[in-house]
Computed example of a mutant assay.
Amino acid sequence: MRLLGRGNHGEVWLAHDRALKRWVAIKSGLALEHEARDYPRCSAVVVLHDRLDDGRLVFEYCAWPTLAAALTRHWSATQCEQACLSAWRGLASLLASGWAHGDLAPDNLLVSPRGAIRFIDLGSRVRLGQPARHTRRDYSAPEVQAGGAVTEAAEVYAMAAVLMRLVRRTAGTTRLRRQLNRCLDPSPRARPSLVQLTRPLARPSPGARAARLSLLIVGLVTAATLSHVPAPADEFERLSQDAAATRLPGAPVRLVPVPTTR
């Protein structure tokens, strides 16, 4: 066997199960009875295969690295969005089973090269509406750290705190940062629901971008005409480039400043 890692509740070893004819992860340590009891059955968590006579647990082996380890690699904005969406959908699937993870952190999430997320180390999970078994200052919601119950809003906060570690390291993720900042609101009622978070981020359509660009052009020309102050030539040059970039039928490719007289 080979040691895969150590967590809050024990050690995990890689072994080959002759009966299953596959590699498995064997976990030893504390709170294993609690972790094995009513173990959630959903695609977001690693599968629990068996419990050995000595109390150790046999899990499926997933070769993905933890998010904590994957933070050092290069992430594109698209990969980052995929990871966040997968995390939200996985959390929704877990909560639908009636359980909260209770210990969301970068070292308790596995991430694939394409950004798929799976949860591990469910030894701290609790039923929704119950107090947490323990908290983490950097990730647990304020109300949970104060002794309150673990709710959907609390798990949304914890997941957002985890994902923010990734988003802050990735360029081109302004919309994701705004979304996560809303999830980190101190008030549970102000946080988005998982129904909202499990939808892909809306992207502005080319038509909407062209409409906003047209309004901006009209506003500049009108302001320059009414005030009898010529609009800056460099601003018209920038708008010309933006208009050409939309590549829409009929979109202007060159704007000419309107001459004004005093």
Score class of each variant (00 low, 15 high):
110 L>Y: 00
8 N>Q: 09
221 V>S: 11
165 R>Y: 03
191 R>S: 11
79 Q>G: 14
1 M>S: 10
192 P>Y: 05
206 P>M: 05
104 L>N: 00
236 F>W: 13
143 E>Q: 05
41 R>H: 07
197 L>M: 11
72 T>Y: 06
258 V>Q: 14
118 R>L: 12
1 M>N: 15
166 L>M: 04
42 C>D: 02
13 W>C: 08
171 A>T: 09
70 A>K: 03
215 L>R: 15
195 V>H: 09
40 P>D: 07
56 R>C: 14
177 R>N: 08
183 C>R: 05
44 A>D: 05
214 S>E: 15
241 Q>L: 15
145 Q>V: 01
38 D>N: 02
84 C>G: 13
19 A>M: 11
35 E>L: 05
209 R>T: 08
71 L>G: 10
113 P>C: 15
186 P>A: 08
247 R>A: 15
199 R>W: 07
232 P>M: 03
17 D>E: 10
49 H>D: 05
192 P>E: 12
88 W>M: 14
88 W>Y: 14
147 G>F: 15
69 A>N: 09
27 K>F: 02
175 R>M: 11
64 W>C: 04
86 S>A: 11
21 K>L: 13
249 P>C: 13
99 W>P: 08
254 R>L: 12
45 V>T: 09
81 E>F: 01
138 D>T: 08
79 Q>R: 13
220 L>P: 06
67 L>Q: 02
75 W>D: 01
97 S>P: 12
177 R>T: 12
74 H>G: 01
191 R>Q: 09
202 A>P: 09
91 L>M: 08
2 R>T: 15
147 G>C: 06
22 R>C: 14
218 V>F: 05
104 L>C: 12
127 R>V: 14
70 A>W: 00
142 P>Y: 14
208 A>C: 05
175 R>Y: 07
102 G>P: 04
75 W>G: 08
94 L>A: 07
63 A>L: 05
148 G>Q: 00
186 P>S: 07
58 V>E: 11
91 L>H: 04
76 S>I: 04
121 D>C: 10
19 A>E: 14
243 A>N: 06
223 A>S: 03
188 P>V: 12
105 A>R: 07
78 T>Y: 12
6 R>D: 02
232 P>Y: 02
165 R>W: 01
49 H>P: 00
206 P>N: 04
180 L>K: 07
252 P>Y: 05
18 R>H: 08
154 A>I: 14
49 H>I: 07
77 A>W: 00
79 Q>I: 02
185 D>H: 13
135 T>D: 03
30 L>I: 07
174 T>F: 12
251 A>W: 01
94 L>K: 04
161 A>H: 00
143 E>A: 03
180 L>W: 06
202 A>Y: 01
26 I>Y: 00
227 S>Y: 12
99 W>Y: 08
128 L>Q: 10
182 R>W: 13
84 C>T: 13
114 R>N: 15
12 V>H: 06
78 T>W: 12
89 R>A: 07
229 V>S: 11
245 A>C: 03
262 R>E: 10
108 N>D: 01
120 I>M: 04
155 E>I: 08
262 R>P: 10
12 V>A: 07
86 S>Q: 01
10 G>P: 02
213 L>H: 11
55 G>F: 02
212 R>T: 04
207 G>Y: 14
135 T>F: 06
185 D>P: 01
234 D>T: 12
136 R>F: 13
87 A>S: 12
235 E>S: 15
201 L>D: 09
31 A>P: 00
53 D>P: 03
166 L>E: 09
42 C>P: 09
120 I>K: 00
83 A>C: 14
